[in-house]
């Protein structure tokens, strides 16, 4: 699974977590990744209710596992202004990796990439490198290489 450059969204302006999840869900409908931005949005919110997907150092990883998703996708969203999110270090969020998979039809390769992305976020080096890049093509290339390399 390559992460297309169009899934890298930089300088995005939203006011809060729900606004971001709504924006992403809409974007997925535009790109044809889902037929129901509402269904996808509800799935993100449902997952946040179980417990927050906020991490630390300004990162969060909201995710949805739902049949409203047509194909597994990863988005990276960099926000213009930090937004409130329940995180481990109580810092607000500026960098969001959004993961989505179909409930039943997602192959192992995709799941492995999502798993690799999640564990990459434990590494300071990965987060630092992401911050250094400012071009969506380069970011998509870097992430794809980092998380698809050892499958």
């Amino acid at each position: 699974m390559e992460i297309p450059a169009r899934n890298i969204l930089l300088n995005i302006n939203v006011t809060d977590r729900d606004g971001l999840l709504r924006f992403i869900s809409k974007q997925c409908e535009i790109f044809g990744y889902t037929n129901s931005s509402k269904g996808l949005y509800d799935s993100f919110i449902q997952r946040e209710k179980e417990y927050s997907t906020g991490l630390q150092d300004g990162f969060a990883i909201p995710h949805a596992k739902t049949n409203f998703v047509k194909s597994a996708q990863i988005f990276y969203v960099r926000l213009q202004h930090p937004i409130e999110w329940k995180t481990y270090d109580d810092k607000s969020v500026t960098d969001v990796f959004v993961l989505m998979v179909n409930e039943s039809g997602t192959g192992k390769v995709h799941l492995k990439m999502l798993s690799n992305l999640a564990t990459a976020l434990l590494e300071d080096e990965f987060k630092k490198k992401i911050h250094e890049l400012n071009d969506s093509e380069k970011i998509s290339e870097y992430i794809t290489n980092e998380i698809g390399g050892n499958i």
Partner: peptide, 14 residues
């Protein structure tokens, strides 16, 4: 974890 996507491998690796 609930979805089994992200926190499961993160906790294991950590």
């Amino acid at each position: 974890c609930p979805a089994g996507l992200a926190h499961t491998p993160m906790a294991a690796k950590a």
